[in-house]
Design a protein around this nucleic acid. Structure first.
Lengths: 309, 309
DNA sequence: CTGAAAGCGCTTACAG
DNA sequence: CTGAAAGCGCTTACAG
């Protein structure tokens, strides 16, 4: 069956026939015992419903299955350190091949555990905590944010406001850094960001705060979902998008083009990121991913325009 | 360690200390060999990015982890029978506890394989192919659709149009059946549905067809994502929602309330469905799920109103 | 080519 | 309470 030893055709056929007749299926656990490893890769991520992660998960699973691996998933709140530890324990109770981490925040926690168990990990990072010790795929959030803010500035806005979201260890999100960089480059002092989290309700409130400020003519949101809610709040406050306020997001969510007005955003190739991270784990031939670099791009749409004079 | 045999406290402590020092972790494969089963449950679903399924997956994983199970996922196009078979093989190469099927369409395929391997399965079904032989959680799509269409009719619309989507074996989707039922109950002959699939582009085209028909004053869409696109097409054609055309969806997508106009829809408790399906697999005490019945409900919002006279 | 032994890392009886 | 044997279902050398 394994093909490791020459066997006559007749015998092979007889064995195969018996297998079919009995519905025989090799026991993966026994196999794993011998090989010392299960053909399983773990994925750890918070909230896989968010657009980027859901894309990555889909592509990881697809790529893994193509190579005969099963994907085991743990979805957790990275803030819950105990929960993360427990989940890692459950995952590592199987002699799995490695773990793909789709969350920057729980990154350190997982790395800790991975060291304990010597389990390989690969992570998708936006650069903030890239670490030469850990295999990672880089998604350049900062450059993407800069491109969006530059677009807004190029349209003639004097400044661009930002909705901030919590980030790893109290640091600034790379998208926030990109926003600051773009303003700094033109000698503009960044206005104070309006705080939000990743929920719809919180984003609606942040949007209301921005809508109430007559100075605001352009808003950059850290992702498209937040931008949708901000546009809603602008509408509720009677401020037209883009005539009164331009709003831009980041990711290119599937609904971004359907929204009224359609959302200006920046496409990030999350599918590529997920796939590449997985290959880091199961492929020796890592270099092959280098030339598959994604075509990220700015997508100007209806939600942004020059400010009214 | 297993607690199956009495051991003195001193010895227990020494063993624990040694475990910590060596970073010992029991080998799950060896354990599984003895027990004849891995603490793994499989999940088979197409496109986990869609709202309902992403909710179910999240809850399934959460519930499974709480009981010490790992969730192994296979994401596949149900139309691809060979792909489904292959994925099931990969999944079943592990002696897993069972499989939760989140897709009505691939249901039969999986059942076939599950019979071969005698692997228990639990499925989330909308009633169309409910089968007493298979453990299932019922999500009453038909009743939900009826409630939405009734709402539209109650507002005074003479009829309600429908965007149809492909379904299992060429049959009508239960949401389509609910739509027909509601119209039939009032003696209204259902207008021909406009065909679409689950993609944004296809829904936009269906919306354009409906927008071009001056007779159309109310549209029921099989889910919220499609409704969003239909609203976009209405806008592009210069038809106002809800003044000229009322549009309603089904699911209560997180963005439904943020959309402009906010979308009238019907909340389905997908989290409950996923969780319950998993419990069917790992809990002997199935009855406990019965009284946890979800509070589904109609959510009238801005996208629907009485027709202009 | 074929057959039988050893061993993967555990758990469960079963003697002491 | 402690220690050592048997066996879970496979794969890999190793004799014939």
């Amino acid at each position: 069956m394994t093909g490791s030893t020459p066997v006559s055709d007749g015998t092979t056929a007889k064995v195969r026939a018996a297998m079919d007749e009995l519905g025989y299926r090799p026991n993966g656990a026994a196999r794993a015992l011998v090989h010392g490893q299960q053909p399983i890769v773990g994925v750890i991520a918070p909230d896989t419903a968010a657009y980027g992660r859901s894309r990555m998960l889909t592509e990881i699973e697809d790529r893994a299955r193509a190579s005969g691996y099963v994907v085991a998933i743990a979805i957790l709140d990275p803030a819950d350190a105990d929960g993360v530890s427990a989940a890692v324990e459950v995952l590592l109770s199987q002699p799995i091949v490695g773990v793909v981490v789709l969350d920057y925040n729980s990154y350190d926690t997982v790395r800790l555990h991975s060291k304990l168990g010597a389990i390989p990990i690969a992570t998708v990072t936006n650069g903030a905590d890239a670490d030469a010790d850990v295999a990672h795929v880089l998604v350049d959030d900062r450059a993407a944010a800069r491109a969006v803010v530059d677009h807004l500035l190029d349209l003639g806005h004097r400044t661009v406001h930002y909705v901030s979201v919590p980030y790893y260890g109290g640091r600034s999100h790379p998208r926030e850094l990109g926003w600051r960089e773009a303003l700094d480059a033109r000698g503009i002092v960044p206005p104070g960001p309006v705080a939000s989290d990743w929920t719809v309700d919180s984003a609606l409130m942040a949007g209301a705060v921005l809508a109430a400020d007559a100075e605001v003519t352009a808003v950059f949101c850290p992702n498209d979902e937040i931008a949708f809610s901000v546009m809603r709040s602008m509408h509720d406050a009677g401020r037209r998008v883009p005539q009164d306020v331009s709003v831009a997001g980041l990711d290119d969510h599937p609904l971004a083009a359907s929204w009224v007005p359609s959302l200006t955003t920046y496409r990030l190739d999350w599918g590529w990121a997920g796939r590449s991270a997985l290959e880091l784990l199961i492929d020796a031939d890592v270099a092959s991913t280098a030339d598959a670099r994604p075509a990220n791009m700015l997508l100007p749409r209806e939600s942004t325009s020059a400010p009214l004079v």
